Computed example of a mutant assay.
Amino acid sequence: MARKNKLIATKFRGVKEIVNLHGGKEFIVSFSYKGFRINEKNFTKLFNCKTAKQAHERIPIVKDQIDKGEDPLTTTTNKIGELVLNNLEDKNIGFKKNSTHTYNKHIKPIIGHKYIERVTEKDLIKIRTNMEKQGLALSTIKKIRTILSPIFKKAHNKGIIKVNVLLEVPMGGHETKPRLEERLHGTIKDNAQNIFNKILVLKEFQNDEEFKSIFLISMMCARRLGEILEITYEDIIDGVVHVRGSTTKTYKIKGERVVERYPLPKEVLKIIGKGKGKVFNHQVRSCLDEYKKMIENECNLEVKELGKKFPIRGHDNRHFIMSLCSEKFGKDNVGSLALSHNSVSNMNDVYLSTEYKRVEELFKYYWRLLRSKPKEL
Rank of each mutant, 00 (worst) to 15 (best):
P178H: 15
A192L: 15
V201T: 04
N157M: 05
S213I: 00
V169S: 12
P170C: 09
V163T: 15
L167D: 14
E209V: 07
N157Y: 04
I161L: 07
E182K: 14
N194F: 11
G159H: 00
F152E: 09
I160S: 07
H174L: 08
F152N: 12
L200M: 09
D190A: 15
V169F: 08
V201M: 01
K162M: 11
L202K: 04
R179K: 15
E181D: 11
K153D: 10
F205E: 03
K158F: 03
K189Q: 11
E209R: 11
E204P: 02
I151R: 12
L200S: 03
L184S: 07
I188G: 07
G172L: 10
N197R: 14
P178W: 14
N191E: 13
L184F: 14
D208Q: 00
K153M: 09
L180G: 10
L180Q: 13
G172M: 05
D190C: 12
V201S: 03
N157Q: 04
E175P: 05
E168Y: 11
S213K: 00
K198F: 04
V163K: 15
T187M: 13
P178A: 15
F152M: 07
N164R: 06
I160E: 00
K154I: 01
L167Q: 07
V165C: 00
I161T: 03
G159Y: 04
I195K: 00
G159A: 03
H174E: 03
H156M: 05
K212R: 07
Q193I: 08
H174M: 05
P170G: 10
D208K: 10
M171F: 03
N197L: 13
K177R: 15
G186F: 12
E182L: 14
V163F: 14
Q193F: 02
P178S: 14
L180Y: 12
N197S: 06
E209F: 02
H156N: 11
V169M: 10
F205K: 02
E175W: 06
G186D: 09
N191Q: 14
E209K: 07
K203F: 00
F196G: 12
F152R: 06
L167I: 05
L202G: 03
D208V: 02
K177F: 15
G172I: 06
F215A: 02
V169Y: 11
R179F: 15
I199M: 08
D208C: 08
L200K: 05
G159M: 04
R183Y: 06
K153T: 15
L216Q: 08
K198D: 04
F211I: 04
F152W: 11
K189H: 02
G159F: 08
K189S: 03
I188M: 12
N197K: 13
K158W: 10
I217Q: 06
G159R: 03
H185L: 15
K189G: 02
